[in-house]
Every structure is written in structure tokens, then in C-alpha cells.
């Protein structure tokens, strides 16, 4: 299988063509430097993203939160839904953990802004 990717390491934005089998990369072309290859590798084998969103507190105020570690890209929608469903009471402090292990990803969800 092949997939086209745009490398995000620098403004160059190399258009990469990745040939792969399952999660294993066979070849990368179109990159200008080694970083493109590394990027393609991770995008194919295990693409991950940090999710940032808000949780509406019980008191009705939005609380900004993030996943402390990146989570699998394929799980963004379900992870976001799980975060949204969390029950948060004010006040919260930046760094406070509101979910310890998000849907088994191993990532915590933490508050990114203190809200009174």
C-alpha cells in the first residue's frame, strides 16, 4: 500500500510518498531530509495527536484541558467524547488531573488553566 503525506517538520512541507505493509514502512520518497523519513514512519506505524478541548464544569464554566500524552489519532473522536463527559467541579488548578487513564491509552487528561 502507498500513502501520500505532507511532512510537518519545517515550512518546506515535503510531499512524501510512503510505501508500507500493515504498520511497517517499506520505503519513503519525496522527503528532502532524514526527518521526513522519521515522520512518515510514525505516521504509518502509530500516528498520535495531543487533544486539547474544554470540559464544561458542573458550575457551567468551560475548563480547558489536554491529554498529557498524545493519543492514537484514530481515537480522537471517542477520546474527545470521553473527556467531554468528565465531571469537573470548580475551582480547578492548572496541571490538575481530571482523567487518570483516558480510555486505556495511558494518557492522563489535565487542566491547562486555573479556573475559579
Amino acid at each position: 500500500m502507498t500513502r501520500n503525506l505532507i511532512c510537518i517538520n519545517c515550512p518546506m512541507g515535503c510531499e512524501l510518498t510512503v510505501e508500507f505493509d500493515g504498520g511497517k514502512v517499506i520505503s519513503v520518497s519525496g522527503n528532502t531530509c532524514k526527518r521526513g523519513e522519521i515522520y512518515a514512519e510514525s505516521e504509518i506505524s502509530n500516528p498520535t495527536r495531543t487533544i486539547t478541548t474544554t470540559v464544561i464544569s458542573v458550575e457551567g464554566r468551560p475548563v480547558p484541558v489536554k491529554t498529557a500524552q498524545p493519543v492514537p489519532k484514530g481515537m480522537i473522536a471517542e477520546c474527545t467524547a470521553a473527556i467531554k463527559a468528565a465531571e469537573v467541579h470548580l475551582p480547578v488548578k492548572v496541571g490538575q488531573v481530571i482523567i487518570d487513564d483516558l480510555l486505556g491509552t495511558g494518557s492522563q487528561v489535565t487542566v491547562t488553566k486555573s479556573v475559579q
Partner: peptide, 8 residues
């Protein structure tokens, strides 16, 4: 960091 974390 996120924006609010940077600000904080």
C-alpha cells in the same frame, strides 16, 4: 504547552 499554560 497550551496557550493558557504558557501564559500561566
Amino acid at each position: 504547552l497550551t496557550g493558557p499554560e504558557y501564559a500561566e
